[in-house]
Structure formats: C-alpha cells, structure tokens
Simulated scan of single mutants.
Amino acid sequence: MTMSKTRSEGSLPVVSLPLPVDVTAPAVARQAVRATLASLGFDDLAADDVLLATSELVTNAFEHGEKPDKLEVEYADGRLTLRVFDSGTNRPRLKEPSPMAARSRGLQLVHALSEDWGHELCAGGKYVWAVFSLHRTEAAG
C-alpha cells in the first residue's frame, strides 16, 4: 500500500491510504500514521495517543462488519485529523463498557485521547474522525 497526497487543506496536504479489508488493516494504518507523523517532525511520545486512536478507529470499522476502506491524515494549525472511511452507514455510538467486558472500549479510548471526534455520512458510507492538538517544534519545521 502506498500513501498519496490527495489535496491541500490548511498548512499540509491530506495523506490518503487505501486500507486492506482484512485483519492487517489496523497495523497498516498505524505504520502509515507513524511515518506521516515522523515526516512532520513529531516524536514517538507525541504519536502514541494518535497511534492508539488509529488502531481503535480502524478496528471498529473492521469488526462491525463495515470494512475499512481508506485512512486520511491531515495536519493544519496545530491540529491533526484522522479520518477512517468505511462502506457502512451504522453510526458509531459511545457505549459505557461493563467492568467485566473484555471489549467495547474503542470509542471510549478515542474519546479520552482526542480533542474531539465524530462521524459524517459520505458517498459510499461514512467516515469516523478524531482530532488531536499537536504542535511542532521550531526545529521540526
């Protein structure tokens, strides 16, 4: 899979990556986001929350029968936005997980780690997005 810069919005172009429709999608997405953050000059510590949220968003798209289609990453004005597209129209819901449940914490994590998150319907399905405040150092660009 190769990333492509699809359009300019704000200060840096959107990076778009088609995702595989199998269990490798979260790992492929994490690798792409890690490379994008490194190219923007962010260190691993700044990337940790974004990478965990990436895994959760892609896993949710995969596990809920609405296979992930595409990942977009955009950085502008100190805000990084992730978008995970899938072909489903079921709206994601923030559930209160049971202490005994082994699952159902993905969106809770995204909610806790991101500045904001939500979803939008679009042609062919929907996308779930999450926004993070990340500020680059002067040395990084």
Rank of each mutant, 00 (worst) to 15 (best):
S4Q: 15
K5Y: 15
T6A: 13
R7E: 14
R7I: 05
S8N: 10
S8F: 03
S8W: 05
G10I: 00
S11N: 11
L12G: 00
P13N: 03
P13T: 04
V14D: 05
V14H: 05
V15G: 05
V15L: 14
L17D: 07
P18A: 12
L19K: 10
P20V: 01
P20G: 01
P20L: 01
V23S: 08
V23E: 14
A27C: 00
V28K: 07
V28C: 02
R30P: 00
R30I: 09
Q31H: 09
A32K: 08
V33N: 11
R34F: 06
R34M: 04
A35P: 01
T36K: 09
T36S: 07
T36Y: 07
A38I: 11
A38E: 14
A38C: 02
S39H: 10
S39Q: 13
G41N: 03
D44I: 12
D44C: 03
L45N: 13
L45C: 04
D48I: 12
V50T: 09
L52V: 15
A53T: 09
A53F: 09
T54S: 08
T54L: 07
S55N: 10
S55L: 02
E56F: 02
V58C: 03
V58G: 05
T59R: 12
T59H: 13
N60R: 10
E63A: 07
E63W: 04
G65H: 09
E66N: 11
K67P: 01
D69W: 06
D69I: 06
D69N: 09
K70D: 09
L71Q: 06
L71R: 05
L71A: 04
E72V: 01
E72G: 00
E72H: 08
V73L: 08
V73F: 02
E74C: 01
L80V: 09
T81F: 00
T81Y: 00
L82H: 06
L82E: 07
V84I: 15
V84S: 07
V84L: 07
F85L: 13
F85N: 11
S87M: 03
S87H: 14
T89Y: 10
T89D: 12
N90G: 00
N90C: 00
P92E: 12
P92K: 08
R93E: 15
M100L: 15
M100V: 14
A101E: 15
A102S: 11
S104H: 14
S104G: 14
R105V: 10
G106A: 12
G106K: 13
G106Y: 11
L109V: 15
V110L: 11
H111A: 08
A112G: 12
L113M: 08
L113K: 10
L113S: 05
S114Y: 06
S114F: 03
S114C: 05
D116G: 03
G118P: 06
H119Q: 14
H119G: 02
H119W: 15
E120A: 08
E120I: 02
L121S: 10
A123E: 15
A123L: 07
G124Y: 13
G125D: 08
G125H: 10
K126Y: 02
K126P: 04
Y127M: 10
Y127P: 10
Y127C: 07
V128Q: 14
V128K: 09
V128S: 15
A130L: 10
A130C: 07
A130K: 14
F132Y: 13
F132L: 04
F132E: 06
S133G: 07
S133E: 11
E138A: 04
A139T: 13
A140Q: 13
A140G: 05
